[in-house]
Computed example of a mutant assay.
Amino acid sequence: MTTKLLLKALALSIALPGAAMAGGTHAGDHGKDKAAQQSHASTDDHHEMMALGQPAKGEVTRTVKVVMREDYEGDKPFVYEPGELTFAAGETVRLHIVNEGEEVHEFVMDTMDANAEHKEVMAKFPEMEHDDPNSVRLEPGQEAEILWTFGKPGTFEFACLIPGHYEGGMHGSLTIN
């Protein structure tokens, strides 16, 4: 979560205490139909370049499926499959995100610091959702896509920032080579 979004969420919570919670979003209406959003990452030019890249710029070279689900019998109740992602700098990828679980889950990719900051805000406002090109929130059985061009080499993270999910194991390493 960017500092700008954090400040916006905090300002709303102070100025309009009921509105931030009732609205259910902190950067737009993610309550709209997911099918209509599937390609929003490739059409939203108002989002600035992030450390890990930007919405797709160029032709998609491959598709990577990421499954979100619960595993109550394992040592981590919330999981992503695969648990680690690796991309090349400049690579444009279609991330096909599928919620095969029985609970709502998110896929948010960003720096570890930005995700930690965002997680703190989500703990205070658990009904907040995302309208960022680097994230999706899905109900059970839903699918969505993020079309993304990865930036400079580094280690990043993907995570579910719904309270309790990160702590339950729902995060993984995203490496750009």
Rank of each mutant, 00 (worst) to 15 (best):
E91P: 04
D75W: 08
D113L: 13
A41Q: 00
D71H: 02
G151F: 02
F107G: 02
K119N: 14
N134D: 15
K57Q: 14
N99V: 01
E129F: 09
R62Q: 10
G90R: 02
M50V: 07
A27P: 03
V60A: 11
A88V: 07
K57R: 12
A89N: 05
T155A: 12
K124I: 08
V60G: 06
V121K: 05
D33S: 08
V60W: 09
K124V: 10
K65C: 06
Q142H: 09
D71Q: 02
P153A: 08
A123N: 08
V98G: 00
V136Q: 00
E102R: 07
Q38R: 13
M128W: 07
E70R: 00
P133L: 02
M109N: 11
D33F: 04
K32N: 09
T25K: 07
D110R: 12
L52S: 13
V108N: 04
E48A: 14
N115Q: 04
Q142E: 15
E120W: 09
K34I: 15
A27V: 08
A144Y: 01
K65P: 01
M122E: 00
K119G: 09
D110L: 10
H30Y: 14
V136R: 02
Q37S: 13
F87T: 05
E129G: 15
T92E: 07
H105C: 05
Q37P: 01
E102T: 14
E81Y: 06
V64R: 06
Q37C: 11
S42Q: 14
V66A: 01
L52G: 07
F125R: 00
Q54I: 13
P82D: 12
A89P: 09
L85C: 04
A36E: 11
K34C: 08
L52V: 05
R94V: 11
E143D: 12
R62F: 06
Y72C: 01
P77S: 08
G23R: 05
G141T: 03
S42M: 13
D29E: 10
V98K: 10
H47L: 10
V98S: 07
Q54G: 09
Q38T: 13
M68C: 03
V104Q: 10
H47E: 15
Q142F: 03
G154R: 06
